[in-house]
């Protein structure tokens, strides 16, 4: 948890239109995720329901709450 960033943020009034830089730890994770997503996209091509068009068309539920 990026406490420093939060602490710094808490000192600012909420309506100030200052740009806050995204947290660097998160950005690293996002880069990792993009690489990993490639592997997952390969998997998706294999596991996505076949006949997507028909499947999605026939997926009809009764309204609930």
């Amino acid at each position: 948890m990026p406490r420093e960033k939060q602490q710094e943020y808490r000192d600012h009034p909420i309506n100030e239109n200052e740009e806050i830089q995204p947290n660097s730890e998160i950005n690293d994770n996002v880069d990792d995720l993009t690489e990993d997503l490639d592997a997952l996209l390969d998997e998706i091509d294999e596991i996505l329901e076949e006949d997507s068009e028909e499947f999605v068309e026939n997926f009809i539920q009764r309204g609930g709450q």
């Binding site: 406490r3 943020y9 830089q21 995204p22 950005n27 995720l33 997503l37």
Partner: peptide
């Protein structure tokens, strides 16, 4: 802490929450 963390990061770029928040996880995919 987590609420503040999410709001701060979303203010810069909502897509930065691609491991945390369902709609962003799904949209990235």
């Amino acid at each position: 802490d987590k609420w503040e963390y999410v709001l701060t990061n979303m203010k810069s770029d909502p897509m930065s929450m691609g491991q945390h928040i369902d709609w962003v996880i799904k949209k990235r995919l």
